[in-house]
C-alpha cells in the first residue's frame, strides 16, 4: 500500500465539511490531491506520522465553478487549473490566467490540481500567488459558525499562508483598464518549478504608470510586493528608459540574493522584460 490507513470522509455539503473539519482529530483536507497524496506517500516512506482523517471536498458542488456578478469575479476553490486555462468566464483576465496555468506542471496534474489546493498547500514557488497579489484578490474562508471571512491574498501570504479554516473561493474585481504581465524563469523547459516569477499590474494614464502593483516570487519565500519599485514606476513616465532604469529601484531584501548571487541579476532582467512587454502590448 502506498498510504497509511486513515478514515476517509466525503461530505456533499460545505456545512458538513466544516463540522467534520472542526470536530475530527488529525484531519487534512483533500482538494485535487496532487500535493496531499504525494505528501502522504512521503510521510509513510519516512516513517512519520500521517493524518487519521481525510476529508475530500470533491462532492461539494458549492465549491465548483467560476461566476461573475457585476464587476466581481468569483473562482470557487475546487476549480481545476485546466478549467482556469480554458475558461472564458474569466472575461478580461482569461489570457493571463491561461498564461500562468500553462506554466504549472503537466496536463493530468492540471486536470486534478485546484486553485484552492494550490493556494493552501504552502509551497512557496507555486504560480498563482504572485498573479493574485497583483490582481488584489481576496480569499474567502468559512468559519465554524459558517460565516465567511475575506482575507486579502497579500495578507494571507504575509502570514505564511496559514489558516485553520476551509477556503471556499477567490474573488477579483474586474477592471478593463488593468494591464498585466507575468513572467517566470525556469531552469529548463522540462522543470516546471520556477526559480523566480514577476507579475506586474498597472494602468497607463497619460503616458504614465499608475496604480502599479509589482508582485515577486523568489521561489524560497512566499510572494511579496515590491513597494520600492511600485513607487518608482508610479512616479515615472511610461518609456523604455523607465523599464531600463527600473532595476535600480528594487527592494533588494525580496530577491533572495544572499543565497544565489545570480538571482538578483535574473530578477533585474525579468522585471525589465516584463515592463517592456507591458508597454509594447505583447503581454497576454
Amino acid at each position: 500500500m502506498l498510504l497509511n490507513p486513515f478514515k476517509f470522509h466525503s461530505p456533499q455539503k460545505l456545512e458538513e465539511a466544516v463540522s467534520l473539519y472542526n470536530s475530527l482529530p488529525g484531519v487534512r483536507i483533500l482538494a485535487g490531491g496532487t500535493f496531499l497524496i504525494n505528501n502522504l506517500k512521503l510521510l509513510k516512506k519516512k516513517g512519520l506520522k500521517t493524518p487519521e482523517n481525510i476529508i475530500s471536498l470533491r462532492r461539494i458542488d458549492e465549491l465548483k465553478g467560476i461566476s461573475c456578478h457585476k464587476k466581481e469575479l468569483s473562482i470557487k476553490a475546487l476549480t481545476s487549473v485546466s478549467e482556469l486555462y480554458s475558461s472564458l468566464s474569466l472575461l478580461e483576465y482569461s489570457q493571463i490566467f491561461k498564461a500562468v496555468s500553462r506554466n504549472l506542471a503537466t496536463t493530468p496534474i492540471r486536470n486534478m490540481a485546484t486553485i484552492g489546493g494550490n493556494l493552501m498547500c504552502r509551497y512557496c514557488w507555486t504560480e498563482f500567488p504572485a498573479l493574485l497579489i497583483a490582481l488584489k484578490a481576496n480569499l474567502h474562508f468559512i468559519a465554524t459558525d459558517l460565516k465567511e471571512e475575506a482575507v486579502p491574498v497579500e495578507e494571507f501570504f504575509k502570514n505564511s499562508a496559514k489558516s485553520e479554516k476551509i477556503l471556499t473561493r477567490v474573488t477579483l474585481t474586474l477592471d478593463p483598464q488593468n494591464c498585466i504581465c507575468y513572467q517566470s524563469v525556469r531552469k529548463s523547459s522540462s522543470v516546471d518549478i520556477p526559480l523566480l516569477a514577476v507579475c506586474i499590474k498597472t494602468k497607463f494614464s497619460k503616458k504614465r504608470f499608475s496604480e502599479t502593483i509589482v508582485a515577486v516570487n523568489n521561489g524560497t519565500s512566499f510572494a511579496r510586493r515590491d513597494s520600492v519599485l511600485e513607487n518608482f514606476l508610479n512616479q515615472s513616465e511610461c518609456s523604455i528608459k523607465t523599464a531600463d532604469e527600473s532595476s535600480q529601484h528594487l527592494d533588494t531584501s525580496l530577491y533572495d540574493a544572499s543565497r544565489d548571487d545570480y538571482k538578483e541579476h535574473m530578477f533585474r532582467v525579468t522585471i525589465k522584460n516584463t515592463l517592456r512587454e507591458l508597454m509594447t502590448g505583447r503581454h497576454p
Binding site: T34, N38, R58, N111, M112
Partner: peptide, 15 residues
C-alpha cells in the same frame, strides 16, 4: 473523460 493520474487518486473519492 479527463486524463488523471491514478497513483494520486483515492479510489473512494471517485466512487
Amino acid at each position: 473523460k479527463k486524463a488523471v493520474l491514478s497513483c494520486l487518486t483515492l479510489a473512494c473519492a471517485v466512487a
